[in-house]
Simulated assay, not measured.
Amino acid sequence: MSISADERRAKILAEVQKLGSVRVVELAERLGLPAVTVRRDVAALAESGMVRRSHGSVSVTTGRDDQAADGPALGLLVPSVGQYFDEVIAGARDAAGRAGTHLVLGISSYEASVDQAQVEQLLKSGVEGLLLAPNWLPSDRPGEQEWVKELPVPAVLVERRPALGSPAAELDSASSDHHHGVLVALRHLSALGWERITLVARRDTWTAHQVRDGYIEGCELLGLSAEPVIDSISPKTDAKTVADRLAEACARGVRAALVHNDQDAIQLLPLLRARGLRVPEDLSVVSYDDVFAALGAPPLTAVAPPKKAVGAEAVGLLLRRMASSAAASVPVQHVQLLPELTVRESCGAAAG
């Protein structure tokens, strides 16, 4: 059974961290993966600063600047490497380096059951603070977040905004305001004259649920009628089925769509063309994430959460909390940063 790029890169990173340094060919053999695939994944990890490449080998990187960092190690738990969280990691890594600290990375591969185990490993490695992007969903059972209350070191949530009254509500947090991001997209499409705008979105991530909630809220604020949300690509729904449902919505008068995320939006473009729908002539499309939206055909207008800035802000909050851990009077901060819209060709408006 094939595995996703995120899963491959998580396995590669874990193996490199275990070995310290290994030749790429040997790494491919150990993981049972084609060498060309491993080289491509290693290149992506190196570009994000998570490993170091040199003469056919790959080794661990501490995330430090060129000069050694003498400060404490900070643990960073993310659900994946690649795509969205690469930029979050890069922002956190740069901020940690500037502060004389370094990062130790844990990856849970979008499995909530792995979160605690990864955090335990980070704590065993000697980290003195934690940056956490756990795999929390609205469907979580009561008590599944209780473990954050027992952490022995200061912790900050990253790209997660704790629910009021939840166990995590007393933790500092830095996140993108996805409700604002969706509103910006809807306002742009509405300004182009479209009154019927649908949402194509996943259900399997925290961000996806924020986007869904933001869509309902944004439509109400702008006086738009919320269309039925089209469930995006999942183990039970393939891209062709999503394209069929979007084509049916267009037949009912929908003329614009917000798609979460870039990957799903780019997959839909040729499938829509095969169904006689041209973007942007017949359907204006905005994608959410802006990781590689510019590579679509046509290039996609996209909402860009401030991913690097969120990573940097989270490090700042954690270092402040670590420095003042004895001062109970320091208030908890929940910081939200605003996404921006980058206009490209997929809406039919001039790019800028």
Rank of each mutant, 00 (worst) to 15 (best):
R245K: 11
A243E: 08
Y288I: 02
R278Q: 07
V211S: 07
L269C: 11
R202M: 10
A226N: 06
D264G: 11
Q210P: 02
A312K: 07
L221E: 11
V310N: 01
D213H: 15
R203N: 11
H178R: 06
R245I: 12
D238A: 01
S284H: 03
H260R: 13
A309P: 10
D282A: 02
E248Y: 13
E281V: 01
T207E: 03
G223S: 09
E227V: 03
V286W: 01
A251F: 11
A294L: 07
A247C: 11
A304K: 15
L186H: 07
G311S: 09
I216C: 10
A247F: 08
I230H: 01
Q267I: 11
V303W: 02
I266M: 12
R202H: 13
L199D: 03
D264V: 05
Q263K: 10
D262E: 13
D231W: 05
R196H: 05
L277P: 03
A302L: 14
A247Y: 02
D244C: 00
L192G: 13
D290C: 08
A249W: 02
A239E: 07
V229L: 09
A294G: 08
L269P: 11
E248S: 10
S284D: 02
I197R: 05
P280A: 01
A239P: 07
P299I: 04
Q263G: 14
V211M: 07
K308F: 15
E248N: 14
D213N: 13
D177A: 12
A265D: 03
K307Q: 09
